[in-house]
Amino acid sequence: MRKYMVIYRSVLLENLQYAANVAMGFLGYFVFIFIFVKLWGYMYRTPEELIAGYTKEQMIWYVMMTEMLFFGSNAASVAREVAGDIRGGNIAYLMNRPYHYTLYILAKYTGEWSVRLPMYVALAVVIGMVMVGPLPHFRLTAVWAMALCVILGLTINAVFKMCISLFSFWIEDATPFQWLYDKLILVVGILFPVEIFPQTLQPLLKLTPIYTVCYGPAKLIVDFSPEKCLEILVVQILYLMVGCEMMFLIYRKGVKKLYVNGG
């Protein structure tokens, strides 16, 4: 475990340097939030109206939280790096090092978002307070539980994105599949809470990774309840186990294929 900590720490320090660059990403985040403030401002005819059980403030805070996770985690970097390593042949060196390649990438990535995400949290709070107003019924005492869900959610997301990138062992370019996964998360998880979809679809959506990656953490922040929290945590742990198992499996198969073909 210690070697992964060291990887984590060294990348963390390196990334502090890039803090200034992240500021540019803030602009992109702001544009999204601005559009959604305007959009929901139009969709809610009266201030008291509820849509799918959410008040206007909750709805906007929901999208602010999911976008915050999306921008703050920049999971695309995992996909790019893994695909790059495999296609560029770097993998041949990395897989013989005394650590597991996939966990190395995960540790590195966690180091990256540990710097980015807090900045986006601060930004989201400021924008939210100014443009929307404080979140009603926010449970400050439950922040630790929310944080746990966020960490698990981001890790699951990275695991899934890595699985897709690992397909680069077989196909030349896995990016189009990344687009599709990202779009799925975006449309069904980031933009709207699950409750807004037709009743019949909802149970189906709860089975997809979206529920654990995106909806879960954001829902807890916007509308916390201990029962919901427990439910999401259980599902997240299940997903993480299955996801990791899948990741190891694909990796093993991929490496075997590499040996057969001699790199």
């Binding site: 370019d173 189009p176 687009w179 779009k183 449309v187 933009l191 979809f197």
Partner: peptide, 30 residues
């Protein structure tokens, strides 16, 4: 690489089409 070329083009179409879901949802509300 024709396969990569075609998947790139086709997936971009799908990728765009996926976003229409957002509008079906919004038009259910108003």
């Amino acid at each position: 690489n024709k396969v990569t070329f075609l998947t790139n083009v086709c997936f971009m179409v799908l990728n765009n089409a996926a976003l229409l879901v957002q509008w079906f949802i919004l038009f259910r509300l108003r």
